[in-house]
């Protein structure tokens, strides 16, 4: 990291170089797909820790796209829905709306303990207690919250299935 201490006219060049150098690379072979898997991230009422870790994964410190994934901002472009949070009763309608907007072949993945069974926020007057209240949870990434690298590894595993 010594280079980034240099300032002056070349500082931006150094900044570009360091930005590339610092990025974590994908372990193993890079998957070959016709197109990347589109990920849509939805927070449904948790502490937001899992959502922020997925956002970090989508940032520049991880090679998400190199691993064959791309985060999308429209559910119509998504293949997988990454759901974080305990699923509040108010958010169930939002979840349904987003799920219906996704094209056929869609998959639902619970990210973090809350998304599976509510974690520390089990069913109550305002919460359903995770996805399991709505549907069998077949694809889940455990953790409270899982680290971005753990989420990436889990996504790669799920993509191989």
């Amino acid at each position: 990291m010594k280079a980034v201490q240099r300032t002056g006219p070349l500082s931006l060049l150094y900044a570009f170089m360091d930005a590339t150098r610092g990025r974590a690379s994908v372990n193993g072979e890079i998957p070959r797909r016709e197109r990347p898997i589109g990920l849509y991230i939805l927070e449904t009422g948790g502490c937001e820790g899992c959502f922020m870790e997925v956002e970090s994964l989508n940032g520049s410190a991880f090679a998400l796209e190199q691993a064959g994934f791309v985060c999308v901002s429209d559910p119509a472009d998504a293949d997988w829905l990454l759901l974080t949070g305990a699923v509040t009763r108010v958010c169930a309608e939002m979840l349904d709306r987003v799920w219906r907007a996704m094209p056929p072949g869609r998959s639902l993945i619970a990210v973090g303990a809350c998304a599976v069974d509510g974690g520390p926020f089990p069913a109550g007057y305002a919460t359903l207690g995770g996805l399991q209240a709505l549907t069998p949870v077949r694809r889940a990434i455990p953790g409270c919250p899982p680290a971005p690298q753990e989420i990436l590894h889990a996504l790669e595993e799920l993509a191989r299935v």
Binding site: G45, T88, V90, C91, M94, P120, F121, G124, Y125, A126
Partner: peptide, 11 residues
């Protein structure tokens, strides 16, 4: 903010 309300105080 109802979507984010988890009833924390009651818990």
């Amino acid at each position: 903010a109802g979507g984010a309300h988890r009833g924390v105080v009651s818990r």
